[in-house]
Each structure stands twice: as structure tokens, then as C-alpha cells.
Design a protein around this nucleic acid. Sequence first.
DNA 1: TTATTATACCTAGCCATACTAGGTATGTCA
DNA 2: TGACATACCTAGTATGGCTAGGTATAATAA
Lengths: 110, 110
Amino acid sequence: MAVDKGYMSGSARMLVLNLLNEKSQYGYELIKTLKQRSNDVFDMKEGTLYPILHKLENDELISSSNQEVSGRVRKVYCITDKGQRVLAREREEWREFSVAVNQVLTFGGI
Amino acid sequence: MAVDKGYMSGSARMLVLNLLNEKSQYGYELIKTLKQRSNDVFDMKEGTLYPILHKLENDELISSSNQEVSGRVRKVYCITDKGQRVLAREREEWREFSVAVNQVLTFGGI
DNA sequence: TTATTATACCTAGCCATACTAGGTATGTCA
DNA sequence: TGACATACCTAGTATGGCTAGGTATAATAA
């Protein structure tokens, strides 16, 4: 990760959910998509991703199925309706948070 | 805090440094300033702030002195030159991070 | 006067979260 | 065949904010 890992806290889940909302993907693929889409800012580690995926599935925000992709069986994840509702809330929270940070930072037109 | 506390991770330090860069303040005052400036989004706890202040002082990013404010002795914190340099870097990191998150979230003009 | 509340500072221990570092297995390519 | 990328997994670690408690002073209400 190009930025301090602390920033990831709280966002990792939302980012994963968001990517799965656009397109069902398997774990390893998510890491590459995230890296590419963020212009190499996010380099999520497997030790971060897989526990998140397992927790999301356990909470029924995503579901998984073994599918053959490019001649190989992969565990493909798909967002659920519940996951979409949670994602919408988390996106709103992110917006509120980032606006607040920028308000603090840009006081006085700095 | 109105938003999930996880988002604070990595930002709390920068926000404190940023406020002290504008104006020397004592701890309790920082909490109120932060709350006000963020329209009640940030409600930083004392158990969060004081350890941050002590760490920042230990790292020589801020310095403190006991001053009488409104007829009472308070521990007033002041940013150092080193603190200003670190703040500039952290602001840049925040910008990079938030841009990256928004890039991931708004793919396809969503 | 006394009780309550707000101010002001502090810290030990808790908990959530991302990471490190290791493991296993398969496919590709030199 | 050996090296590397792909693909998944997890135990343990480190970080960082919070909970919940403490102390002390000043202002305000009963």
C-alpha cells in the first residue's frame, strides 16, 4: 500500500463490497482489481482480504460458489441484497467522513 | 463519532496536528474544536486524544507548556517545525488515499 | 452550604482490524 | 525440471482508538 495502512481501517470492507457489487470475482482477482483501479495505491494483502471475505460471507453480505474460470476452479464471490444495502450505508458513511476531514483540513481556505 | 470509528484510524493524528498548526491549544479545547469544525461528525474521546498528544510530544512533533488560560493553568500544545513537515506529508497521504477510494467507488460514473 | 455538572488531565486494559509469515496446491514457462 | 505466478488459507502480531475508571478544580444549582 502506498499510503499508511492505518487509512485502510474501516475502508477495506467497503472497497471489497463495492467491487463485488460491480462484478462477481474470486479473491485473488479482487486484489488485482483493487490495485489497478486505485493506480497502485491499494496493494491489499491476502492476509487482509481472505479474512474479510470469510466474515462478509458469514454475515451473509456476499455468497460464494466454486466455478471454473480459465480452466481452473476458483471460489467466486457474489454480493447479496443485504450486502448491497450495507454497501449503500457504508458509502454514505465514507462520504460523510471524508467531507468532515476535508472541512477540518481546509479551514480558512488553506 | 457519527461515522464508524474504524475510519478514524490513521487520521486522528493528522487532524490533531492540523489543528495545532493553525493555533496552539490545550487538549480539552482540541476535542471541542474538532467536534465543531466537523459539524459534530468527530467526537474524539479523551482516551484517544491524550495518548496521541503524548506520542506526538515524544516524537517532537509538538511541544507543551503550562500556561494560564482564563484564570486556570492548562497544558497548551504547540506544533514544531518537524511537526509541520510531518503534517504536510500526512495531508498529502490523505489526499492520495481519499482520491484512490473515490476512484474505486465511482468507477463507471456511479 | 452542598450537590451537581462541566472542565481538564491521565492511564490500564480491551477490542477491532490490517499485516506478517508461514503453509498448501496447481498451472505456466524457460 | 526448476522457478515463478496463481490461488487459497490461517495463527499470531502490531497498531490504534475506545471503555471505563481515576484525580482535581471551577462554576452553577438546589
